[in-house]
Amino acid sequence: MEFVKKDILDMESLSVEEIQAILDTAETLKEISTRSIKKVPTLRGKSIVHFFYEASTRTKTSFEIAAKRLSADTVSISASTSSIVKGETLADTAKNLEAMNPDVIVIRHHAAGAPHMLARLVKASVINAGDGMHAHPTQALLDMMTVREKRGRLEGLRVAIIGDIAHSRVARSNIVGFIKMGAKVVLAGPPTMIPMGIEALGAHVRHHIQEAIHDADVIMVLRIQKERQQAFVFPSEREYAQCYGLTVERLAEAKEDVLIMHPGPINRGVEIASEVADGPCSVILEQVANGVAIRMALFYLLLGGRR
């Protein structure tokens, strides 16, 4: 198929065929990262701007490496070193970047919808690397790639997502993405962390973690942010670990070959026990490896590699 999208903004705007094309392409390109010379000339002469309004290590590095393995030129801007600190608005920054004619702008932003705004203002392709609590499509795609690799399919699988769904863009994108590909998604966490109306996206909600994980093929554990205690979302990390943490004991009730995933960075001993994170079911580091492949695939497809 021909891949003709301008932007990758969220999972809602990707079709099943487009998702399949991205996953297939990523699988092909993954091999490049295993070579001794990890570089192909495919995107020579293309410019990619990485614009990170929010702190990020994993995602930013992953995008950078992906671009460089395809020989694109990359520029990296972070909020603290840019004109944002001088009070420049996103709209003005967008117009200025546009004037320099980049091919792709990768943006991470604390405000939901910021990548959509940017996409309306620039001719360059925009990739959303995470916007507020809204979406993190490249994370969902790399998660789907990891599951497909291990299970050979997505359709019919049961995916449990545990933790702070309300504040998680990773959860939102995975809910939409996995359901689109025919999987069943079950959510669990304290009611303060389950956003109103999430069932409308097709997910099922359980309040006991056991109910969500006992028949799951995949357990995705979300990071718990200590700051949420100030908004009365949960009383303490201690209590969270006791009631909702993925411990060895709880995991014993799950399927033997269940996949354990986490978007990182992990809080050992809070949402996930060290033994589980480092255990045989964990594919957490494979997620990271696949992140590079997914981002290479997106650059390749957006910049016309298929055409």
């Binding site: 919808g113 979406a135 863009r169 939102r172 109103m196 109306g197 996206l201």
Partner: peptide, 15 residues
Amino acid sequence: NEGVTATRLGLAGIP
């Protein structure tokens, strides 16, 4: 407004 649309858009809701 807090509800389905805010949840979809990832915007903080007001009940």
